[in-house]
Design a protein around this nucleic acid. Structure first.
Length: 588
RNA sequence: AGGGGAUUGGUGUAACGGUAGCACGACUGACUCUGGAUCAGUUAGUCUAGGUUCAAAUCCUAGAUCCCCUGCCA
């Protein structure tokens, strides 16, 4: 565990709460079953949740929230809930529910495991929310307003100018009757709303008598046609947290202005509640805490923008490996471990900044370097003929599977008279410090032989199409008995044994750190060449690679076998390149 | 104009009145059968101006800049 890491401000709050006993301790019946439940008994309660609205796919920004909430529960022996905030039937779909569950589980936030509190729906609480609403009406804290939406907007007021509603002081009985009629379906969409009676003059517009219920005659993916009024976020969310016993209700910065509302609603419910009260006992009042979102450079994250990219065909779908969605990143080859580490490393604060792509790439490289089996594959093949190689001879040389992990073992790779090497590894007129192949130069072919370039063949256009090289038989295995050194080691593939591979090479989707910053239109910053597909050639062991397998193609980067793979037609995605100090030097 | 937040190297993040540290990046060098990895090192920071204090990133005052807020979205 990373106990060395300093606590972020939310962890500090949790620690302080645990020390003060603010949320009590886990008790029998609350702690849960099994070993985890017994371990929880008597410990301070820490109960978090991830509350997505099922109206889109999860992206890297959500990963931060998931890791934060789940991590908090896990580290303190508490619980983590997955809760679908399905309060708006006109935007939400079952399709997203399944996708979200899959992604959350993939990330490792198991709501059913030892730290899981379970899976819930906001719609599970619709009846209770409604009862609370009637209670608020009866307490004189809410009223039915018959202003049409446009009229409410007009009467919203401005800083310094209060809002107005002619229905604010209507009799309680009238509001109650109308609320019941609303529920019974006697009124059309938009005819009226239930509003909280808070403060029409508040400088915080969220407090200017916010809508609690609106009429929506539309079937709900969970409750069907049981309801035609649906609760607004601010009214619903605190109740959901309260019912589930959430202790720390963590959300992003834009909800900071809503916190007074979160508190007001729970306080309103609790007004006059307590022992002997006609309303019943007090309800729990969790603490809302806000943190800043994960904002990577060179991408967009909003649902609307991502959706448009899918619809416009800019990408090939929600799981396009260039997408910042969790399914996109998964298809690209990102590991949940790397994403979790990344979320740990970027920290949790209220500062709105950018996370550099380099930081994200570092996380995945670091993990993949440790676990990925190495293979040789030539992305842009250039034919090499070993002129002094015995006709028909095949030499199987031994290659290390992972220099970072001795237990990964070795494998045999065939070497023969016709090979492919990387086109970029040859230059006819090399600049200084180019250590690779050029006329007269000697290099090592990894795990095999030293070869020397003795000549080139060109096509009609003058382009080099083949290298004629000699090998030194004494260097088999890659070392020269006479002690002479070479400055470069190249990857290679035997042409006769090569497995054809479609390799998809990705670049960032946008050319600007903050897409749309300059022109206001993020599509203006689209990178036209974010995808390059090449016909690569791989070593024969790649023939039985399965979808999802990850490899490091030596010197080229980390690759993941794509689901488009068919028998005999391997397709791989480049997750990320290796760091390449030569490419940098050659550029600059 | 009103309300709510934020401000520490290029980026992210610590330091909670007492040595401004860590990570990513960049740059050197060493090593290397991946120009990868690894190792060693360098670079560079407290938004501004006052004040309190033996001592201020931290406390006080004033200002600057940026973000959020006038959906029957979440």
């Amino acid at each position: 565990m990373s106990d060395e890491r300093p606590l972020n401000f939310i962890e500090q709050i949790v620690e302080a709460d645990n020390a003060s006993g603010k949320w009590g301790v886990w008790e029998q019946g609350d702690a849960g079953e099994g070993e985890a439940g017994r371990a929880r008994l008597g410990r301070p309660r820490v109960h978090t949740r991830f509350p997505p609205e099922p109206n889109g796919y999860l992206h890297i920004g959500h990963a931060k929230a998931i890791c934060l909430n789940f991590g908090l529960a896990a580290r303190h022996g508490g619980k983590f809930n997955l809760r679908f905030d399905d309060t708006n039937p006109s935007k939400e779909e079952q399709e997203y529910v399944d996708a979200i569950k899959e992604d959350v589980r993939w990330l490792g936030a198991d709501w059913e495991g030892p730290h899981g509190g379970g899976m819930f729906w906001a719609s599970d609480y619709f009846e209770r929310m409604y009862q609370f609403a009637e209670e608020l009406v009866q307490k004189g804290l809410a009223y039915v307003c018959e202003l049409p939406a446009e009229e409410v907007a007009k009467r919203r007021g401005s800083p310094g100018v209060p809002a107005t509603s002619p229905f604010r002081d209507r009799p309680i009985e009238e509001s109650l009757r109308l609320l019941r009629e609303m529920r019974a379906g006697k009124h059309a969409n938009g005819a009226m709303t239930l509003r909280a009676k808070i403060d029409l003059a508040s400088p915080n517009f969220n407090l200017r008598d916010p809508v609690m219920y609106r009429i929506v005659h539309e079937p709900h993916h969970n409750t069907g046609d049981a309801w035609c009024i649906y609760p607004m976020y601010d009214w619903a969310h605190g109740i959901e947290d309260s019912i589930e016993g959430i202790t720390h209700s963590i959300c992003t910065l834009e909800f900071e202005n809503h916190r007074p509302l979160y508190d007001w609603f729970l306080d309103a419910i609790n007004r006059d509640r307590g022992p002997g009260s006609r309303w019943g006992p007090r309800v729990r009042h969790p603490q809302q805490i806000e943190f800043s979102k994960f904002r990577p450079t060179y991408t967009v994250l909003s649902k609307r923008n991502l959706l448009k990219m899918v619809q416009d065909g800019v990408v090939r779908g929600w799981d396009d490996p260039r997408m910042p969605t969790l399914r996109g990143m998964r298809r690209r080859g990102y590991t949940p471990e790397a994403i979790r580490t990344l979320c740990e490393e970027i920290g949790v604060t209220k500062v709105e900044g950018f996370i550099e792509i380099a930081k994200i790439e570092n996380a995945i490289r670091d993990h993949l370097n440790r676990v990925s089996p190495r293979r040789m594959a030539v992305l842009r093949p250039l034919k090499v003929t070993i002129t002094n190689w015995p006709e028909g001879k095949v030499d199987w040389v031994e290659a290390v599977n992972n220099p970072e992990d001795a237990s990964a073992g070795t494998r045999k790779v065939p070497f023969a008279g016709t090979l492919y090497v990387e086109r970029d590894d040859f230059m006819e007129n090399p600049p200084k410090k180019f250590f690779r192949l050029s006329p007269g130069a000697e290099v090592r072919l990894r795990y095999a032989y030293f070869i020397r370039c003795e000549g080139v063949k060109k096509d009609a256009n003058g382009e080099v199409v083949e290298l004629l090289c000699t090998h030194d038989p004494a260097t088999r295995g890659g070392d020269a008995p006479d002690g002479r050194k070479v400055k470069a080691t190249l990857h290679w593939v035997s042409a006769a044994h090569a497995v054809p591979i479609e390799a998809r090479l990705f670049d960032r989707l946008f050319n600007a750190e903050e897409p749309g910053k300059r022109t206001g239109h993020y599509m203006d910053d689209l990178n036209p060449s974010s995808l390059e597909v090449v016909r690569a050639q791989g070593e024969p062991s790649l023939a039985d690679a399965a979808v999802g397998d990850r490899f490091q193609f030596e010197r080229m980067g980390y690759f993941c076998v794509d689901r488009d793979t068919r028998p005999g037609a391997l397709v791989v995605n480049r997750t990320v390149t290796l760091k390449d100090s030569w490419a940098k030097a050659a550029q600059g």
